[in-house]
């Protein structure tokens, strides 16, 4: 990655390295009951244990979307609660390994409302750091109740993390909202199937480029009852270039080191390429706009 653009990136860059592990896998089974979820947790833990042996010392781990349940017509029967023994197992695992982890899971919030498709982030203290509810569900197929907020929370090594789930990333607003709220690492967990290989890569890279954030994207791999999940998990630089990418159609453990402080430095110090600011200050380098440019009020679609 060119950390600058046509201009150099001035100044001293202070950052920690965040070591991220992305699990590209399929669930053990499509769960039709809460007890089935334990079997999927067992498989996820096998992968985590492999990562802790082969890639020791990592900070952050991502699973694919809905990995604890599987994407079947019965997933609503396998929704777990935040107080369940299954969530307790996830907490214990993160505490034991002193890692942050983002798990894709169907959650029953015990409020009488149809379950949610969630990214559950647990910190190294074994506490829930964030519960993100998928806001732009994959309609018309996916029946989960949508959430109403893109969230950003402090993660390891100077990261400010937003989690997005699969089709959230098909909408530019999801990425932009995350960046607007200060995210420097956007974690997109997916259960993306053929024929959307190109769309998956395009949206991951565009999400990074348009917003100058890192993107960590992990996807399922394998066949379920309905779909071929293609994998191709990836880590993407803030300029949209791919740092590293997993193969198509195979289980994989992908590791990437990223530098959240570098992302912050780029967003604040770069003379060029801050597309969020520039988009709201069109033509700011013209003598006619006084260095401030013009805002987005010309866009009719924003006036709806």
């Amino acid at each position: 990655m060119n950390v600058g653009n046509c201009y150099p990136l001035n100044g001293k860059i202070e950052t920690e390295a965040l070591s991220a592990v992305l699990l590209q896998m399929s669930p053990a089974l499509s769960a039709s009951s809460v007890s089935d979820v334990d079997k999927n947790i067992d498989k996820v833990f096998e992968y985590i244990d492999r990562a802790s042996l082969g890639l020791p010392g990592f900070d952050l781990l991502l699973t694919p979307e809905i990995i604890l349940n599987g994407f079947s017509a019965e997933f609503y029967r396998s929704a777990i609660t935040l107080g369940s023994s299954q969530v307790a197992r996830l907490k214990e695992k993160c505490a034991a390994l002193q890692i942050w982890a983002v798990f894709g899971v169907v959650i029953d919030l015990e409020d009488g409302i149809f379950p949610r498709n969630c990214a559950l982030t647990i910190n190294p203290d074994g506490e829930i750091a964030n519960l993100y509810i998928k806001t732009a569900t994959w309609i018309p197929v996916e029946p989960f109740t949508p959430g109403d907020e893109i969230q950003v929370f402090d993660g390891p090594k100077g990261s400010r993390i937003a989690t997005l789930i699969c089709s959230d990333g098909d909408y530019l607003d999801s990425w932009r909202e995350a960046a607007h709220k200060g995210a420097n690492v956007i974690c997109r967990i997916s259960d993306y199937m053929t024929p959307y290989q190109d769309a998956y890569e395009i949206t991951n890279r565009a999400g990074a480029y348009f917003n100058r954030t890192y993107v960590l994207a992990t996807n399922s791999s394998g066949m379920d009852e309905s779909f071929c999940l293609f994998g191709r998990s990836m880590a993407v630089n803030p300029d949209g270039s791919i740092i590293t990418q997993a193969p198509e159609g195979a289980p994989y453990i992908l590791k990437a080191d990223i530098y959240p402080g570098l992302c912050d430095h780029i967003q604040k110090q770069a003379f060029m390429g801050n597309l969020r600011w520039q988009g709201d200050h069109r033509g700011a380098s013209s003598p006619e706009t006084g260095g401030l440019g013009r805002d987005k009020s010309m866009y009719s679609y924003l006036k709806r």
Binding site: K268, Q269, G273, G290, G291, L292
Partner: peptide, 24 residues
């Protein structure tokens, strides 16, 4: 010679610098 008095980021500064530079 730059118009704005405050710059939130480098892009804002450099745009303002060029805006001023190109004032005929």
């Amino acid at each position: 010679a730059i118009g704005p008095d405050y710059f939130d980021n480098g892009a804002a500064f450099f745009c303002a610098y060029h805006s001023a530079l190109y004032r005929d």
